Amino acid sequence: MIVVTGATGGLGGTTVEHLLKRIPADQIGVSVRDTAKAQHFADRGVRVRQGSYEDPAALRDSFTGADQVLLVSGNDPAADMVGLHRSAIDAAVAAGTRRILYTSQQGAVPGNPYRPSDIHIATEAILGDSGVAWTALRNGAYGPLDQVLGPWQRTGEIAQPEDGPVPYTDRADIAEATAVILTGARSFDGCVTLTAPTAVTFDDFAKIATGITGRTIKRIVLGDEQWVAEQIVVGVPEQMARLMLTWYQAARAGYFADSDPLLAELLDREPRTVADRLAALTDT
């Protein structure tokens, strides 16, 4: 059995949908905080059990019988995520899991100023000491492009801090590739990187968007403190704004610049490009 945590979230839920296309439903389980939100999976034959990283006993029960567990990383900046990930790994080991897969992040290396990188580095180290086989999926940035670019369709501007090349990756492609890894015969040991094939900058986005829309989309570089101040004005807590600023700092320092061919290999097709995704946005 394959058990997926966070299955009511975007990445976890989409991964389960792709698993259902590849293996029988009774070989899939989900571990979720609120089982009512996973009823649509239960109705299709998926085993649904309550479990959260804060409740090790429930987590062990939700992992019972699992050959593989997909741990979707937490993202609460106020929580001890390393400690919670350790509890989840311990629960999977205690349940007899053969392999643990963990959703890490591209560029999770020492020195990366993006603060969540430290959580992923520490969690990967815990996996390495766990005594079971493990795979860290270092996923490329897969956030919604409107979230990344801001209100560019309304303003005609991509007004963000200085950036650097990033292989922005479609979440659905990552979910599909994750399902391929979970159900395939090939073992992936340690860290693997899943990204779109091409890294682009906001300058590139502006050019692509201009070509798609027929409007002139400008790239405006905001100073770091100006951007933080503007985020606070629109209601973003300062702590969160400064955390996100470290992502731009990491991008401009080149920590996300590399791309990897593995995603395309797993999908057996080219992943969706930023042009594909921008065109889809303008069609809505």
Results as ranks from 00 to 15, higher is better:
residue 241 A to R: 11
residue 115 R to I: 08
residue 164 G to K: 06
residue 226 Q to H: 11
residue 23 I to P: 07
residue 143 G to S: 04
residue 220 I to S: 09
residue 264 A to Q: 07
residue 33 R to Y: 13
residue 251 A to M: 06
residue 211 G to N: 14
residue 251 A to H: 09
residue 113 P to I: 04
residue 276 D to F: 11
residue 86 R to Q: 15
residue 152 W to P: 01
residue 228 V to F: 09
residue 168 Y to D: 05
residue 192 V to S: 08
residue 247 W to D: 04
residue 266 L to V: 03
residue 65 G to K: 02
residue 198 T to A: 11
residue 231 Q to H: 06
residue 20 L to I: 02
residue 236 V to A: 06
residue 238 E to G: 11
residue 250 A to E: 00
residue 76 D to L: 05
residue 7 A to Y: 08
residue 211 G to Y: 07
residue 23 I to C: 06
residue 113 P to N: 09
residue 262 L to Q: 01
residue 57 A to K: 10
residue 243 L to E: 15
residue 136 A to L: 05
residue 118 D to I: 01
residue 70 L to E: 11
residue 221 V to Q: 14
residue 167 P to M: 13
residue 248 Y to S: 09
residue 27 Q to P: 03
residue 226 Q to N: 10
residue 109 V to E: 15
residue 246 T to N: 10
residue 148 V to A: 08
residue 282 T to N: 13
residue 60 R to A: 05
residue 223 G to Y: 02
residue 222 L to I: 00
residue 201 T to A: 02
residue 69 V to R: 10
residue 196 A to I: 04
residue 17 E to K: 13
residue 84 L to H: 05
residue 241 A to S: 14
residue 143 G to L: 01
residue 176 E to G: 02
residue 133 A to F: 04
residue 273 T to L: 09
residue 264 A to N: 05
residue 155 T to W: 08
residue 29 G to F: 04
residue 281 L to D: 07
residue 22 R to A: 15
residue 265 E to K: 06
residue 102 Y to K: 03
residue 16 V to D: 13
residue 69 V to Y: 14
residue 280 A to I: 03
residue 183 T to Q: 06
residue 235 G to A: 13
residue 81 M to I: 08
residue 52 S to Y: 06
residue 121 I to D: 09
residue 222 L to D: 01
residue 142 Y to N: 14
residue 61 D to C: 03
